[in-house]
Amino acid sequence: MEAGRHVHLERLETTMVKLIASADINGAPVAFFEPPHHEPDFLWVDGLQLARAFLPRAVADVLFEAVMRNPQRSGARRVRAGGRMVVLISHPITQGLCSAIDLSNGDGEDGPAFNTYCRAAARLHQKHWPLGLSGLLAAAKNAGGPALRARTDGEDA
C-alpha cells in the first residue's frame, strides 16, 4: 500500500449500527458497537481501529483492505456508524486477530494484545452491555451470530 493511502470505506453497505462506547486500547481509541443483528451476542468492534492500536497503520490498512475484498470469509460487517463507515468484527474474530498479533510478536496466543482487548471488552460489557448470566451464556454459544454461522453452515449472513 502506498504511503499515505487510506482504507477506502466509501464502497461499503449502509447498514446502521449503534455506537455503545469507546475504550482506550494500547493508547488508541477503539469503538464498540451493538451487534449488527438481533440475536444474543457480545459487542462488536471497529476492526480497523483495533488493528491500528497494535499494528503500524500501513499494516493495519493492508489487513483491512483484504478483509473488505471478501468480508464473508471473516464474518466482518461493513456499516455506517455515527456518520462514518466502519468495518465491524465480532468478539471471537477480534480475539483471533489479537492472538495473531501476539503470535507475530513472539508472544503466546493469549499475550498482551489479547489480554488488553479482553479486559477492555469486559469493562465495557459490564458498564454498557450487561447481559446477566443467561445472556452471557447465550452470547457465548452464539458469538458472532449469523455472520459466523454463515461460515460454518453455508447460509447467507
Rank of each mutant, 00 (worst) to 15 (best):
V87I: 15
D61G: 05
P29A: 01
A53Q: 01
V45P: 08
A150M: 01
V17T: 15
C118H: 03
G144D: 10
K141W: 13
Q95Y: 04
I25W: 00
G144H: 11
N115S: 10
R123P: 03
G111H: 05
K18P: 08
F42G: 05
D102V: 09
G75H: 12
T116R: 02
R52E: 04
R73D: 12
G75A: 06
V87E: 04
Q72F: 10
H37R: 14
T15G: 10
L48I: 06
G135A: 09
R119I: 09
V45Q: 12
V86N: 01
F64I: 11
L103S: 11
L148D: 03
Q72P: 09
A100M: 10
P92W: 00
L97V: 06
W44V: 14
N26F: 00
A28S: 06
G27L: 02
K127H: 12
T116K: 04
R80E: 15
A28V: 03
E34I: 04
P71C: 04
A76F: 15
L12G: 08
P35Q: 00
S22R: 12
A140P: 04
A51R: 00
V7K: 03
A28E: 01
R78L: 14
L48N: 04
T152Q: 11
N105G: 14
G75Q: 07
P112Q: 06
P130I: 02
F32P: 07
G145Y: 13
S134F: 10
R52V: 00
V17Q: 11
A28C: 02
S22N: 08
R52Y: 00
W44H: 14
A21R: 13
H8E: 02
Y117R: 01
L124I: 15
V17D: 08
G144C: 10
Q49L: 02
A60H: 03
D24T: 10
